[in-house]
Amino acid sequence: MSVRILALVGSLRAGSYNRQLAETAAKLAPEGATVDIYEDLGELPFYNEDIDTEAGAPASAVRLREAADAADALLLITPEYNGTMPAALKNAIDWLSRPFGAGAIRGKSVAVIGTALGQYGGVWAHDDVRRSAGVAGGTVVEDVKLSIPGSANRFAETHPAADAEVSEQLGEVLGALVEHAGRN
């Protein structure tokens, strides 16, 4: 069985540590699974029902929805901005939640991970993303958690892929997400 995982990265910064986690996830995908990193979250306009009509939605929103439709699971990777998730990731979840009750996230297995500067690794943001994705219709894998603290120090000299502990934990996350997607 092949499992396609769509990774959405909450940080838009090209060199972000969360982006590096997504790159590591793509390299560590279990056999039979792929992790595709969605590149265009920054192009999405803020969700607005006035531009999301039966006649159509913005092309960037259509592309995101199509990517999510084609995926079996979502891996949401986020830092913590001011105690919560970045607006770019919340906006993507909003677009994926529509149309209400039939959005592209509906029924998809969802795991939330990330890294942040603080001592808790962004757990508040991760909890908010889990809640938002669940309300939007995703099937959140609640027991899959990876919050890596001290990102600026931990990854200052090394890519997360070179960190054996992170790679092992990320491999476990991906394995659990693939397993959940296979049952879902």
Rank of each mutant, 00 (worst) to 15 (best):
G107V: 04
E179S: 15
L12Y: 01
A152E: 13
E165Y: 12
A152P: 10
E43M: 12
E168H: 11
I5M: 04
A176F: 01
G83M: 07
K90I: 07
V9Q: 05
V173C: 13
F155V: 06
V178R: 04
R65K: 15
V3L: 10
A14E: 15
V123Y: 02
E43R: 09
S167M: 07
A33Y: 04
I5P: 03
G121S: 06
T24E: 02
R106Q: 09
Y17E: 04
D128H: 14
H159I: 03
F155C: 08
I148H: 05
L8C: 01
A164S: 14
I113K: 02
I51K: 09
A68L: 03
E39H: 11
Q169R: 15
P149C: 07
A125N: 05
A25Y: 00
E49D: 15
H180G: 06
G175P: 05
G32T: 08
G42K: 01
D72A: 13
S167K: 09
I51S: 10
I51Q: 11
G42H: 03
E157I: 05
T115E: 02
S16L: 12
V141M: 12
L89S: 01
L170H: 06
W124R: 15
M85D: 04
S109L: 06
A161C: 06
G134P: 10
A92I: 04
R131V: 14
K108M: 12
R19W: 00
A70W: 04
Q20M: 11
A162D: 15
D40L: 12
K108I: 06
A22G: 11
G150E: 13
K90V: 04
G121D: 00
A125P: 11
V3P: 10
L12R: 05
V35P: 13
V35A: 09
L21M: 06
T34V: 14
H159V: 04
Y47W: 07
D94G: 07
V140Y: 00
S2E: 12
D163H: 06
V9W: 01
A33I: 04
V140Q: 07
G103V: 02
E157N: 10
T34A: 15
A133E: 05
A71G: 10
A67R: 12
A116V: 04
D52A: 13
